[in-house]
């Protein structure tokens, strides 16, 4: 009991701040998703004059509208979000792992490589996004200029749905590699050297050591990094918002940017909130299934 009270004391400051600035907005968002709230019927405090809220509870109508009315383009944007997340997370983990393995070898100049490879982490992401957009520019961009100079012709980096998805994924991967690489490197370095030595005594070659020691030992780190990667990428906003603006013609719009367009650009607060709840539900279901599958395989899970 004493322990309990002490524990609550320790978590209290964080929880109070979270309750006020995260949980409350989150619950109000969930509530608003069941209403027809927009900027003409929410509470407005205009100087001394307070106009009370007059929106109504409309049950699940926002949700059924989103799923059924073509203008809300739910399925298209959902599909794009899944592609965006998959195309990002898989290379993030694989490239991160590959680079970590290389950096974990005893080679000269390791520190310099490490610094250069994690450099993008130090660049504020809105600046990186602007730089990539400048590089991808169809007419005066660096890439197309180089391509034209060597006679390959222009590529519609931000004008063709497929190329644009490729372009934003590359930009986002560039941003995400340092974190994934460092995480994997941390995982690799915490594997006990005795394991490798024992394997060598048994005559294991490099590939066998990788498959039988490195991968299994790294699995918990990789699995957690994958889960976090999926959650963050699914909701990642900056790169799409600043590089392609969701274009061309909404081809790179994802659920998070799309919810923003409805909730803020168009002030359809109820619709925007419903979209956000849908995102939350998708990720909850994904995480639950993910953790369950991992547990079934007898692995230490993220939770």
């Amino acid at each position: 009991m004493v322990k309990n009270r002490l524990a609550y004391m320790f978590i209290a400051p964080a929880m109070v701040v979270m309750a006020l600035l995260v949980f409350y907005p989150l619950f109000s968002g969930i509530y608003l998703s069941f209403t027809n709230a927009d900027q003409f019927n929410t509470t407005r405090r205009i100087g001394a004059n307070v106009i009370p809220a007059s929106y109504q509870f409309i049950g699940l109508q926002n949700y059924t509208d989103i799923l059924n009315i073509p203008q809300y383009e739910f399925w298209r944007v959902f599909g794009q979000t899944v592609l965006w997340t998959g195309f990002n997370v898989v290379p993030h983990i694989l490239i991160g792992l590959a680079l970590a393995l290389l950096l974990n070898r005893k080679i000269k100049g390791r520190t310099i490589y490490r610094i250069l490879l994690i450099l993008p982490w130090a660049v504020p992401s809105y600046i990186s996004a602007f730089v990539w957009r400048f590089i991808y520019n169809g007419d005066i961009g660096l890439l197309n200029n180089l391509m034209r100079d060597i006679g390959l012709g222009s590529v519609p980096w931000l004008s063709d749905p497929g190329w644009t998805m490729f372009a934003v994924v590359v930009a986002n991967t560039w941003l995400a590699i340092p974190f994934n690489m460092v995480t994997m490197l941390g995982g690799l370095q915490s594997i006990s050297p005795e394991l490798y030595e024992a394997a060598e005594v048994d005559g294991a070659n490099a590939l066998q050591k990788f498959l039988n020691i490195t991968l299994p030992m790294l699995r918990p780190v990789m699995m957690t990094a994958t889960l976090l990667g999926v959650i963050w990428t699914f909701n990642s906003f900056n790169v799409i918002f600043l590089v392609s603006e969701g274009g061309p013609a909404r081809a790179t719009e994802i659920l998070a940017t799309w919810a923003w367009r409805w909730g803020r650009d168009r002030s359809e607060i109820g619709i925007g909130a419903a979209y956000s709840v849908i995102i939350l539900l998708i990720l909850l279901v994904f995480s639950a299934v993910y953790v369950r599958v991992l547990n079934r395989r007898g692995q230490e899970s993220a939770l």
Binding site: R133, G138, D139, G141, L158, S159, E245, P248, A249
Partner: peptide
């Protein structure tokens, strides 16, 4: 011209 690049077209037009 140039080829339509919705995110950059305005700036590209001005530059050209």
């Amino acid at each position: 011209g140039p080829d339509y690049d919705p995110a950059n077209q305005y700036g590209n037009n001005q530059a050209a």
